[in-house]
Simulated assay, not measured.
Amino acid sequence: MASLGGLAGQRKRYHSLSRWFLQGAIIAMAAGIDFPSALRVGVEGLGVTFFSIVGILLLGILLGRLLGVARDTALLVSVGTAVCGGSAIAAIAGVIKPGNQKIATSLTVVFTLNGLALFVFPMIGHGLGLSQASFAWWSALSIHDTSSVVGAASAYGESSLQLATTVKLARALWIIPIAIVFGVLRRDRVDSHRSFSAFPWFVLVFVGVVALFWGLPGLRGAGSVLSGLGKSAMVVALFFIGACIDFKGIRAAGARAFLLGVSLWLPTAALALVYVYHFH
C-alpha cells in the first residue's frame, strides 16, 4: 500500500511539473510568433470553433444519456473534447461541482485519448499528405489538450507547431463564456473561486507576449532565442506527461465513459478533416 501511495504521489508531482513546463514552454514560444498572423488565425477560426463546440456539447449530452453515463461525467467529457481537455474540465467542474470521482473519470478518458493522439495524428497526417497548415488546423480542432496538440504538431513540423499552438489557445478562451453559461444554469452550485483558478490564465499571458515581441522590433532576436528555449522545455513537459499515465485509473474509469469519449472524438476528428480539406 505504501508503494502504491508513493507511486500516486509521484504521478501527482509529474503532473504538476508537466503543467508548469508546458505553460512556460508555450509562453516562451509565443516570443517567436507573428502577431498579425495570430490575430488573423483567431478571427478565421471563430465561426468553426463556435459551431463545433456547440455541436460537440449537444452530441455529448445526447450520447451520454443513450449510453447511461452520469450526466455530469458526460458533460465534463464533452467539454474536455470540445474546448481544451483537462483545463476545460477543471474550470467547468468549479461551476457544476460534480464530485471527485466524476472529475477523475472524465480526466482519465480525455488524458488517455490525448496520449493516443500524440502518436496517431502525425502518422495519419503524413499518410494523407497533409500540409503543415492543414495538419495544424486539424490537430488544433480535434485533439483535446493543448499539450497534445503542441506535441503532435511539433512532431509534424515547425510551421505546423506555431499555427496549431495559436489556433488551440484561441479555442481555449471559449472556457470563459461556457463557464458563464453553466454558471447561470446552475447558479446554486457555483464555486466561483475554483472555476476562476482553473481557467488557463497562461493563455492571456501568451497573447501578451506575442503582442510585446511584435510591438518592439528590437526584441526580435531575443524572441528567437526564447522561442528555442520553449521548444526544449516542451520536450521535458511531454516526458512528464507520459510519466503520468495511470493504467489502473484507465480501467477504473469504465467502458461506458470511454465509449462516450471515443464516440465524440472520432466524428470530431473526421469532420475537422473534411473542413481542413475544403478550406485549408
Rank of each mutant, 00 (worst) to 15 (best):
L173R: 08
A38D: 00
S78G: 10
V203K: 14
W265K: 12
F213G: 07
Y275A: 06
W214C: 02
L273S: 03
A93L: 01
G24T: 08
L238M: 15
G125Y: 02
A2T: 13
I180Q: 15
Q101G: 07
V190W: 10
G261Y: 00
F247V: 12
W214M: 01
L7Q: 11
A28K: 08
L266W: 08
L116R: 09
G115V: 02
L141N: 01
T268R: 08
F202R: 09
L273I: 10
G94F: 06
K97Y: 05
A30F: 06
S160M: 06
L260Q: 13
R71F: 13
F51N: 08
I56R: 14
V43A: 15
V184M: 13
G249W: 00
G208H: 03
I33C: 07
A25I: 01
T268S: 14
M1Y: 15
Q10M: 13
I89M: 10
L271K: 04
T166N: 03
I176C: 03
V41I: 09
V209K: 04
G45F: 02
R187V: 07
R11Q: 08
V205P: 06
H278C: 11
K248W: 05
F35G: 10
I61T: 15
I56A: 12
S134Q: 15
I245F: 10
V41E: 04
I89T: 06
L39R: 09
C84V: 00
F258S: 11
I180K: 14
G129D: 01
S159R: 14
A31K: 10
Y275T: 05
S134P: 07
L57Y: 08
A153Y: 03
A140L: 02
S87W: 00
L118V: 15
A25T: 05
N114A: 15
T166D: 00
G32P: 09
L75M: 15
R256P: 08
G157R: 06
A152M: 02
G215T: 03
S263C: 08
G5T: 04
G68K: 09
Q23V: 07
S37V: 07
G99R: 02
S224A: 10
F50Q: 06
F247K: 12
G55A: 11
T73Q: 05
S37I: 05
R194W: 00
A211R: 05
